[in-house]
Design a protein around this nucleic acid. Structure first.
Length: 271
DNA sequence: ATGGGCACCTGGCTGC
DNA sequence: TGCAGCCAGGTGCCCA
């Protein structure tokens, strides 16, 4: 499910309910997530106060007094703030019981999500250390994308989804940003002109920002921390619109496969 | 160094 | 009605 806007929406949703609260208990119901959760993790975090709730790429970072909980939502994960005594549903894998009487409950049907507890600087963790700049930050600009595209012949859509080059852009927003920039997804990265690179950087930033504003995109099961879906689906121009008229020129939107993922584009608007 | 393909997992939908 | 097959917001790892 979640790309950067959905993770950021979740972060903003949990922040007021978590920062300043104490973790009374971490209840682990299923430790077989993407990686097996270390058995002593509940003991390590119990009693600690949550100092900050931040995000790096698609990872949520709950900074505690002596370490950081690093959570990834995978494809189907969601994190909600709920009364601690609410009965569990299928695929509820863990509860972070808070001093407020609420729980931060993680649900993830496909179990591609992950949870780590790291001491020291989380940015030095092997999963984070190689990640590219944040797409909404100043370091991701036309100069940067120009530089990293010059020698690569991989398709530009796949380059956008490479977290060593840009983070946070997943399958939905890669297609949407390329539509907005009027660039065909199969174009070799190095074939983009300086103008196209400039448009693409702007498009990535604006698509992600707009999606965050409306709470992300709910296709199937994504919900924010308050259980509400995101409304960006109504603003999608091409994603999952195969055969439907382009919202700009009415040409039927086309679908193709790149790297075993579906890509959508308008053959008229995108060159 | 770069790029391609597979793997991990469950659920929902389609078509026979 | 049942079931096989395919698809789904991610990404680390192995191989050429």
């Amino acid at each position: 499910m979640p790309e950067l806007p959905e993770v950021e929406t979740t972060r903003r949703g949990i922040e007021p309910h978590t920062v300043g609260r104490r973790v009374v208990e971490l209840r682990l119901y299923e430790k077989r997530l993407r990686w097996k959760i270390q058995a002593d993790l509940p003991d390590l975090v119990a009693g600690q106060v949550i100092k900050h709730a931040t995000r790096r790429a698609k990872y949520l970072l709950l900074e505690l007094e002596s370490g950081t909980l690093m959570l990834h939502l995978g494809m189907s994960g969601s994190l909600r703030v709920l009364p601690a005594d609410l009965p569990r549903l299928p695929h509820d894998h863990l509860d972070l019981i808070l001093s407020s009487g609420n729980t931060l409950r993680f649900n993830d049907p496909r179990r591609f999500g992950s949870l780590h507890y790291v001491t020291g600087d989380p940015n030095e963790h092997p999963l984070l250390v190689k990640l590219a700049p944040e797409p909404l930050g100043a370091a991701f600009d036309a100069d940067y994308l120009w530089r990293v595209t010059r020698r690569r012949k991989v398709a530009i859509k796949q380059l956008l989804m490479n977290s060593q080059l840009v983070v946070g852009v997943g399958n939905i927003y890669a297609s949407e940003a390329l539509f907005k920039a009027k660039v065909r997804p199969k174009r070799a990265a190095h074939s983009l002109t300086r103008k196209e690179v400039t448009r693409l950087v702007k498009a990535v930033k604006s698509v992600l920002s707009m999606a965050i504003k409306v709470g992300g995109t709910t296709l199937r099961d994504y919900v924010g921390a308050d259980g509400q879906p995101g409304y960006f689906r109504q603003k999608l121009f091409v994603y999952e619109r195969n055969g439907q008229p382009c919202r700009n020129c009415a040409t039927p939107v086309r679908q193709l496969t790149q790297g075993q993922r579906s890509t959508y584009f308008c053959p008229t608007c995108q060159k």
